[in-house]
Each structure stands twice: as C-alpha cells, then as structure tokens.
Nucleic acid binder design. Structure first.
Lengths: 235, 235
DNA sequence: ACAAAAGTGTTACACGTACACCCATGG
DNA sequence: CCATGGGTGTACGTGTAACACTTTTGT
C-alpha cells in the first residue's frame, strides 16, 4: 500500500451539539469530561474517529453512547481545525448537530456519563472551541428552521400547535401571531389531527397533532415560511 | 504535553471546488494529479494541512498555489471521511468551495500545475470521492444562490444585468423573464450604474454596473429572492 | 359568569408574475 | 427600416400580516 511520505497525521474527533426542547426552553446536553486535559470541565459529547468508521458513523456512535438514541436527526455542521484548538495534541474536530425529543432521551438516559441539560442562555464555560461550535450550531439552526420544518424533530410524536409555536418563539426570541402561525402550520399539509386534546395549558385544550411522515419528507426541502418575514430578515 | 494514547492519527487534506463562469457556462477548475496514487488522473486541487495552519489557511494556500488569487470568496463545504476514500491511506478531506472571476484568474495563471477549466456538464472522471464533492458543491451553490447574492462573486468588477441573468440561468438550467429579473436585481439596492455600456451582445448595448460593497455586505444575509419561486421549489 | 387560551373569519396590501410595449442602434 | 436585445409600464392574483371575533371549559 502506498503511503504519503513527509506529512504529519492528526487526531480526528467528532463533537455533537445536542439540542432539546423541554416545552418552554431550548436546551443543550453537555457532559463533564472524564479525562485530561480539562478533566471535569463541561464539554460537548465527543470522541475520536475509529479506524473503520466514517465521520457520520462516529457521530452516531457517540450520540448513542450518551443518549442511547439512534435514528435521530443529525447532520454535519462544520470541521474545526485550528492548530492549537486542543492544547494536548493537534486534533481536527468535525461538529455535528443533533435534534432530539427530550422525553425520549429521559427514558433511555445513560448513567455512564455525567450528562446534564443546560439552558442555552445559562451555559457553563466549555472547553476548547466548543462555545464557538455551539454558537455556529445555533445560527445554523435558526437559518435552517426559517425555511425547513426541522424543529419538529425536537417534539414528541404527539404535540400541539401552541407547543410548536413556543418552540419557534424560543429559537427566534420573539413572538408570533398565533392565528397566522396556526394556519401556516396547518397549510403545510403534513399535520394529522388527533382526537385527543392537551389540557395542560388551557381550559379549552389544544388538539394533538402527529406528523404525516411521507408528506413531511416530501416537503422538507421546499421552502416553507413558518416565521414572519421581518423575523427572517434578522437571522 | 499530554497526548491521547491508543488513538490512530489520520492525514487531513483540503480540496477546493473552484467554480468560474466564462460568460456563457459554469466551469470547474481541475488539475492532473502529479503523484501516486491515481497519478495523471483529473482531480480537485488539494493538499495536506500543515502543522501550523488552520483548515481555512490550508484551503487558501492551496487556492493561491493553483490560481495565484487571494481574498477570494471561499467557504467550507463539508468534511469527507469514509475510511477507504483514499486507497493509499486514511485521509479526512475537508472540501471548500471557491467562486472566482475567471478573467482575474487568467491573468495570474500558474503554470506549475496542469490546470484546466471544464464545463460542469462535460467533466472527466475524478479520483476518489471528488465527484461526490462536486455534486454537493453544486447543490449547495444552487441552494445558497437562491437567497443570497453569492453569484456576483463570479463576475468581473463591471458587469451587465443580462450577463448576471445568464449566470443565474446557467446554474438553474432554465430561463427567467428578463424584465422581472432586471427589476429584482436593481431593487436589491447594491448595484451602481456606470456610464459605460457593453455593446458585445446587442446593438443597443447594456449598461455596466458595479457592486456597492457596503450595501452588498449589508444585505448579503437577508433573504433575497432573485429567482422565481417555482424554480426555487426544485432545488 | 368570567378568564384565558384555542381556533375561525375577514380584510388590506405587498409582492411576484405575466406580458404589452417602447428604446437604441448597427447593418 | 427592421431585427435584436435592453429596458419600462402596468394589471392581475396569490400569499402574508393584522386584527376582530367565536369557542371551549375549569373554577
């Protein structure tokens, strides 16, 4: 086998930015790092890419280790490669963003790591360039959610339209007209109304909806317009 | 210095997908690879990331080596890390997309590499997963150009509106109404009309325009709408 | 009965599209 | 004077925003 002479090799890691939504606020899943350097400091969940796995496989393995979840929405964000981003040794980190249903996670929580959800606006200091990663992930999420129905990934199977609205309002830190939002969401054509109501937030109760997976996938790449244009301009 | 024990290291390369526009068609700058494996085969311009440079720096260095150009629009596309993408040795490739003014390039052409422009629809077979990279770059360009005035980067300092339209039509492989396109483009507010006309394509001649850099940067992230909605749906 | 959230109806208007038309000029 | 591409004017329709109003139900 031919090898490339005279080149230096580097470690390659994947880091997962794991978003969740608890019904009121956006949250990020962090762990307390178990090894040096920066042991005990808060960090994104990450790990080194192994010999026989691709980047995507590595990210999914890492996510499963921490959350027990598989087949979750996850995509590559960006590769970070500043020479001294990890003081111990040159490491290229490929960051991934995952959106998970926080309730599913709680059922499968792995005890192995000291993982904890943090409010996006109340996070501890993170190691290395992880804060930069989180910032980029947040921006990308805002960007993408303005046009694609990506935030549905954060909700449980059954959810109400007001819940969805709270989710959007949380991300964009603003408020939308509920009546227009309601119609826009329904007009996407991939919500299936359930008979059951959620009475948690009002006396009247809000109907639950489920996603029509086929329609959802079909329209995912179309440019939806769930948030008002003025807000979109500020992303 | 602490090192991470028991982990394998990999080569890290950057590969540049360099787009140009010759006035009629989109083109891609490729080189004939000068070393094994796959010597003499066509390839994206790439190189290994050096000890002291970041990924962005590596990509800019590589771009400069090939084209002599600096301060060009370039951004990271995606990291590719299939275990056997390079048969010689495990290599993680971080792909970058660059948009250059083909005329500027011709003035500064480096003879060191056997570089050649290829029509997007008439490309040779490429090594490794480079075709996948090109495909992804093309999709991303289409996606992004639908909302941001990114394609201006491909034109010379002075250009006409019909030239710009040809560029857009080339990318989306369709035709737009010239009258509506004209107004849309001007309504962005960052085109400055010049006194001079281009008489190359018509008897009447089309006025040249320049970019108002400040306005351009200011509106870059806003969601413009230069292509008709029906086309946007097909991205 | 009332408060509070869910959901419906209605209207005004901006924007995108379609398309008729005029303009400038070299052959 | 006519062909050709550049550019202007205008009318129509859809989709979005704004907001008044009705529905439901626990206390």
């Amino acid at each position: 086998m031919i090898r490339y002479a005279g080149q230096t090799r580097a470690l390659v890691a994947v880091d997962c930015i794991i978003f969740g939504f608890d019904g009121d606020n956006f949250k990020l899943l962090l762990i307390q790092r178990g090894f040096a350097p920066e042991k005990k400091k808060w960090s994104l969940m990450g790990g080194f890419v192994q010999v026989n796995e691709s980047l995507d496989q590595a990210a999914n393995r890492v996510l499963k280790q921490l959350t027990g979840l598989e087949n979750v929405f996850m995509e590559q964000l960006h590769a970070f490669g500043d020479p001294f981003r990890d003081p111990a040794e040159r490491t290229i980190a490929v960051a991934y963003v995952a959106l998970i249903d926080i309730q599913k996670y709680e059922q499968q929580l792995s005890q192995e790591f000291h993982a904890k959800w943090f409010l996006l606006n109340d996070m501890p200091q993170l190691i290395f360039d992880h804060e930069k990663m989180v910032q980029m992930a947040k921006n990308r999420l805002k960007y993408k959610a303005a046009m694609h129905p990506i935030l549905f990934e954060l909700l449980p199977e059954k959810f109400t339209v007001p819940q969805l609205q709270t989710l959007y309002e949380g991300l964009y830190e603003t408020e939308f007209d509920k009546r227009n939002f309601f119609r826009k969401v329904l007009s996407t054509g991939f919500l299936i109304k359930q008979d059951e109501k959620d009475k948690g937030n009002s006396r009247k109760g809000a109907f639950y909806y489920k996603i029509d997976k086929e329609q959802y996938n079909h329209k995912f790449e179309a440019f939806l317009n769930l948030i008002p244009k003025q807000e979109a301009m500020l992303i």
